[in-house]
Nucleic acid binder design. Structure first.
Lengths: 200, 200
DNA sequence: CCTACCGATCGGTAGG
DNA sequence: CCTACCGATCGGTAGG
């Protein structure tokens, strides 16, 4: 039996509203209305609107990081394939995290800039570190010859923004399953950077 | 000698602010302060905040459409290459429009959802029609065998969102020139959908 | 383009 | 979790 706390309900309602209208386009009263309480009553459960945004963004940052960690640990043979399998697994994991929690993921991608001060800087740093995993996977592949790309860092940005684009259009129950989309997106990502002629 | 009207200055200031803080995170007073007039004085030049957003978004929609039109007209030999050159030209043109006017482009990509009523619907329709150009270019290439992709429409979305990602990170005067970025991005886009073995 | 002003709404607090 | 309330700010108008 699953307990849904009011706090969780508030975060879910906020995620949905932040996705639709943005952080600053959503009022504290909008969130309260969505969980059927008075605006001021929200402060019995959260300390501020910023705090709700932080919970959502921080949770997703950790989820993306954990998914990438799992890929790294589950893929000891990656070196043998010159990182090709590794990149495709990273891309699939990233897409999977997004489709698994599309509303929070959307807020993470689009609204982290509404964070203030140190929190904003922390997320900026963690995003850079995360992107670096894609970048160095591509750079490794270029070194071993399975990938062929002029600028690994630019290619990583290209791929990651394409994957993040999911956030703008994905809706559960669409024409393609989440699984199919993740597979297709990972395939497109791999092919964008792959060397044209397989190396011996 | 180039005349800069106050109205143009207002739109430029608004583009920059809308990009940084979003439409609803920007107040009419913020825009006025950026052009050194009083908040209420803004209404001597514009009829509403929505109207400023509309001008920016509509202008960019037309710019993207015109760039794609130019590619179509300048490329009568596209069929001979099975649409491969055509897609790369479309992608390069799209990237070029973004880097040429990064602030307005950013507002177009991220803030069109803040448009109300019919205007929002109009932009949604025009975006769909624009995306359809990419989609059918890819579908044509699949038919002639130069491209190989399971779902042309999904591939078009993938490519377009990757190109639009430019809006989140591009800044003039960076490590790579706008031209180099457009070339590299167009190349990555083409390779993502290209058939692995060239067809006879 | 300014000053003065409008009603509505904002995020948040006090005190129960 | 509620009612009542706070000062600040919102987009916009009136009248010059």
């Amino acid at each position: 039996m699953v307990e849904i706390t009011r706090r969780q309900a508030i975060e879910e309602a906020a995620s949905s509203l932040f996705r639709e209208r943005g952080y600053s386009g959503t009022s504290v009263r909008d969130i309260a209305r969505a969980v059927d309480i008075q605006g001021a009553s929200l402060y019995a459960h959260v300390t501020s609107k910023q705090d709700v945004l932080w919970s959502i963004v921080e949770h997703m940052a950790s989820t993306f990081e954990a998914a990438a960690d799992a890929v790294e640990q589950a893929d000891p043979g990656a070196a043998a394939f010159g990182r090709g399998v590794y990149l495709i697994a990273l891309a699939r994991a990233h897409a999977g995290v997004i489709t698994d929690d599309i509303e929070r993921a959307s807020v993470f991608v689009h609204e982290w800039r509404a964070l203030l001060g140190d929190r904003r800087e922390e997320i900026a740093r963690r995003r850079d570190a995360y992107e670096e995993r894609f970048s160095s996977a591509i750079a490794d592949g270029v070194r071993t010859g399975v990938f062929e790309v002029e600028d690994p860092s630019l290619a990583a940005t290209y791929v990651l923004t394409a994957l993040n684009g999911l956030v703008t259009w994905y809706r559960p129950g669409g024409r393609l399953s989440a699984r199919a989309i993740a597979d297709l997106y990972a395939d497109l990502s791999l092919r964008a950077v792959k060397a044209t002629r397989p190396v011996p």
